[in-house]
Simulated assay, not measured.
Amino acid sequence: MPSNPNMTGAKLRGVLDGLGFEGVGSLLASGNLVFRTESTDAAALETRIQRALNAELGIAGGTIVREYAELRALVDSDPFHGLTHSRATYLVATFFKSAEIPTEISDFDDPLVRIVRIDPAARAILAVVDDSTGPTTAYMARLDKRYGKDITTRTWLTVQKIVKKLEQ
Results as ranks from 00 to 15, higher is better:
Ser132Thr: 14
Asn32Gln: 13
Arg146Trp: 03
Gly58Ala: 00
Ala69Glu: 12
Val34Phe: 07
Arg146Glu: 08
Asp76Tyr: 00
Ser30Cys: 13
Arg51Lys: 13
Phe96Asn: 08
Gly23Ser: 12
Leu126Trp: 04
Arg66Met: 10
Leu53Phe: 12
Ala55Phe: 06
Asp78Cys: 03
Thr103Lys: 14
Ile125Lys: 05
Arg114Lys: 14
Asp119Trp: 05
Glu100Ile: 08
Leu45Pro: 05
Leu33Thr: 07
Arg142Ala: 13
Phe95Glu: 08
Arg72Trp: 03
Leu45Met: 15
Asp41Glu: 15
Ile105Cys: 12
Ile105Glu: 15
Leu33Pro: 05
Gly134Tyr: 05
Thr94Cys: 09
Ser77Gln: 06
Arg51Leu: 09
Thr89Pro: 00
Asp41Ser: 14
Lys145Ile: 02
Ala60Trp: 02
Phe95Gln: 04
Leu27Gly: 11
Ala99Lys: 11
Gln50Ser: 08
Phe95Gly: 02
Phe35Ser: 03
Val75Trp: 01
Val75His: 00
Ile125His: 05
Asp109Glu: 12
Val75Leu: 04
Ala29Arg: 15
Ser106Tyr: 03
Ala93Asp: 01
Phe35Asn: 02
Pro102Tyr: 09
Leu126Val: 07
Tyr139Gln: 08
Ile125Val: 15
Gly62Val: 09
Ala88Gly: 11
Ala52Phe: 06
Leu27Met: 14
Asp107Glu: 12
Pro102Asp: 03
Ile64Gln: 07
Glu56Gln: 15
Ile64Thr: 10
Ala60Ser: 13
Glu104Ala: 15
Thr94Asn: 06
Ile59Ala: 01
Ile118Asp: 01
Glu46His: 05
Val129Asn: 10
Val129Trp: 10
Ala69Arg: 13
Asp41Leu: 11
Asp131Glu: 15
Leu33Met: 11
Ala73Gln: 14
Val129Gln: 10
Arg117Gly: 06
Thr89Trp: 00
Asp131Thr: 03
Val92Pro: 00
Gly23Lys: 10
Pro111Phe: 09
Val92His: 05
Leu74Ile: 12
Thr89Arg: 03
Asp130Gln: 02
Phe96Cys: 10
Glu70Arg: 03
Tyr90Arg: 07
Glu100Met: 06
Asp41Tyr: 10
Ala88Phe: 10
Phe35His: 01
Arg123Cys: 08
His85Lys: 03
Val92Trp: 01
Phe96Trp: 13
Arg142Cys: 02
Thr133Phe: 07
Leu126Ser: 03
Arg66Gly: 06
Leu57Arg: 05
Gly31Trp: 04
Ala93Ile: 03
Leu74Gly: 10
Leu112Tyr: 11
Arg123Glu: 09
Asp144Pro: 00
Ile118Arg: 02
Val34Glu: 01
Ser26Asn: 13
Leu53Asp: 01
Asp109His: 12
Tyr147Asn: 00
Gly62Trp: 09
Asp76Thr: 00
Ala43Val: 15
Lys97Ala: 15
Tyr90His: 15
Tyr90Trp: 15
Val65Tyr: 07
Thr89Glu: 09
Gly134Trp: 06
Asp131His: 15
Val65Pro: 04
Tyr139Glu: 09
Ala99Val: 10
Leu28Trp: 14
